[in-house]
């Protein structure tokens, strides 16, 4: 895999100010992939977005992407 992690990194880096502080951990289960995303404290607002729009857009794209392989995905911003 790794593509979902890459996708998360790509999207997150494009949104935040401190792109070098973006970290993504991917934990793959049988049917569920968990992506743990962390960013610089000052970028939390940017990564979540107004009313969660950025985070939701990222989740939608990750879900679409994972669905092709019959997987579910959970993006956690920590």
């Amino acid at each position: 895999m790794g593509l979902l992690k890459d996708l998360t990194l790509e999207m997150a880096r494009a949104v935040v100010n401190e792109s070098e502080q973006v970290r993504v951990e991917e934990v793959e289960g049988a049917s569920m992939i968990v992506l743990e995303l962390s960013v610089a404290p000052g970028d939390m607002g940017r990564i979540i977005g107004k009313e969660g729009r950025v985070a939701n857009a990222m989740r939608t794209l990750l879900r679409t992407s994972a669905a092709k392989d019959g997987k579910r995905v959970n993006l956690e911003i920590i």
Binding site: V15, V54, M58, L61, T64
Partner: peptide
């Protein structure tokens, strides 16, 4: 699959591209 239910995926894609380009 890129369009998605109620156009959701396409909107998400557009939203991310706009964010990136604007930045």
């Amino acid at each position: 699959i890129l369009i998605g239910r109620r156009n959701e995926t396409l909107q998400a894609l557009q939203y991310m591209v706009r964010l990136m380009v604007n930045k």
